[in-house]
Amino acid sequence: MKLIIGNKNYSSWSLRAWLACKQSGLHFEELTVPMLGEDWQHVQTSSEELAPSHGKVPILWDGEAVVWDSLAIIDYLADKVGRDRFWPKDEAARAMARSMVAEMHSSYLPLRRTLPMNVRKRIPDAPMTDEVRADIVRILTLWAEARARFGKGGPFLFGTFGAADLIYAPVVSRFLTYGIGVPGFAQAYMQAVWEHDWMQAWIAAAEAEEWVIEQYEIPEKS
Rank of each mutant, 00 (worst) to 15 (best):
M1H: 00
N9L: 12
W13A: 00
L15D: 04
L15Y: 01
S24V: 04
L26Q: 02
H27W: 07
T32Y: 04
V33T: 08
E38T: 07
Q41H: 10
H42R: 11
V43P: 01
S46D: 05
H54R: 14
L60F: 07
W61V: 08
E64K: 13
E64A: 06
A72T: 04
I74R: 06
I74E: 05
A78V: 13
K80P: 00
G82Q: 03
R85Q: 14
W87K: 11
W87H: 09
P88T: 11
K89I: 15
A92S: 01
A92D: 01
A93P: 14
R94V: 07
A102I: 04
R112Y: 08
R113N: 11
L115K: 05
V119N: 11
D125Q: 15
A126Q: 13
T129R: 02
E131W: 09
D135M: 11
R138Y: 07
T141K: 09
R149V: 10
G154V: 08
G162S: 12
A163W: 10
A163M: 07
D165V: 09
L166D: 10
A169I: 02
P170K: 05
R174D: 01
I180V: 15
F185N: 02
Q187Y: 05
W194N: 05
W194M: 08
H196Q: 01
H196K: 00
M199N: 13
M199L: 15
Q200T: 02
A204T: 14
A205G: 09
A208D: 06
V212A: 02
V212Y: 13
E214N: 14
K221P: 02
K221L: 15
